[in-house]
């Protein structure tokens, strides 16, 4: 799926299995008689794939969670929500492409969405900073939370980040924002368990190190 294939050594047998099933499915569209047989093979392959992956070590799961082909926030947003309107900028410093935020509907219900966005490929990843936000990204998130709270909207957050950016310039950007943004705001909804990291990121001062941030997570998306 999705562009250049990148296969981790341990996922090879499962990838081949999944590819085989996909081929069969294409064959079956031209011949309805194959349908029941296909169903059976599909079930079998899925079960086998699950068994193989049940044996994964924690480190292998970490590698899987960092898989370059893994869907990121926008991949989910465009499939799950209707009428997504992306909102940019933190009203203070600038826009951070590592965080995507906006309003949309899911089954008729309006929601605010905030999520990390990783890039696909080198160029896109430079733009998205590998899903590692700067202070303005956290302020954008904060702005959306406030907006949601004003309109009583639930917040859906998709967490998919290696960490906040460990950038020296970050300090100045954080200072600049802190004069304007009140901390400790609590949104109405109960989005996820990793909320502390944007608040901390926002409070962080010059010289702080990335390891002092509250959380490290990769492809924990989606948390809601």
């Amino acid at each position: 799926m999705a562009g250049a294939s990148y296969v981790l050594p341990f996922e090879k047998p499962v990838v081949e299995l999944v590819a085989r099933v996909r081929e069969l499915r294409e064959l079956a569209t031209s011949d309805r008689a194959l349908e029941p047989e296909l169903r059976r093979l599909e079930d079998k392959a899925t079960k086998l794939a699950r068994e193989l992956f049940a044996e994964l070590t924690p480190w292998q799961k970490v590698q899987l969670s960092r898989h370059p082909n893994r869907p990121s926030t926008l991949d989910y947003v465009h499939r799950m929500f209707e009428g997504f309107i992306e909102l940019h900028g933190d009203r203070t410093f600038g826009d951070d492409a590592a965080i995507v935020a906006g309003l949309a509907r899911v089954r008729g219900q309006s929601v605010a969405i905030v999520g990390h966005q990783k890039g696909r490929g080198a160029k896109d990843n430079v733009k998205r900073n590998f899903g590692m936000p700067h202070p303005e990204g956290y302020r954008k998130a904060h702005r959306l939370y406030e907006l949601a709270s004003r309109f009583g909207l639930p917040i859906v957050t998709l967490i998919d980040t290696p960490a906040p950016t460990p950038d020296r310039r970050r300090g100045a950007r954080a200072e600049r924002g802190n004069r304007r943004v009140p901390c400790g705001h609590v949104a109405r909804a109960r989005p996820h368990r990793g909320h502390h990291h944007w608040r901390r990121g926002q409070r962080r001062r010059a010289g702080a190190r990335s390891r002092q941030t509250g959380s490290w997570s990769s492809s924990t998306a989606p948390t809601a």
């Binding site: 960490a163 990793g194 490290w216 990769s218 492809s219 924990t220 998306a221 989606p222 809601a224």
Partner: peptide, 15 residues
């Protein structure tokens, strides 16, 4: 909520 093959930690295993 977390995806089946998602991870969440205060630091990377490498770090």
């Amino acid at each position: 909520m977390v995806l089946e093959y998602g991870t969440y930690s205060v630091i990377s295993p490498e770090g």
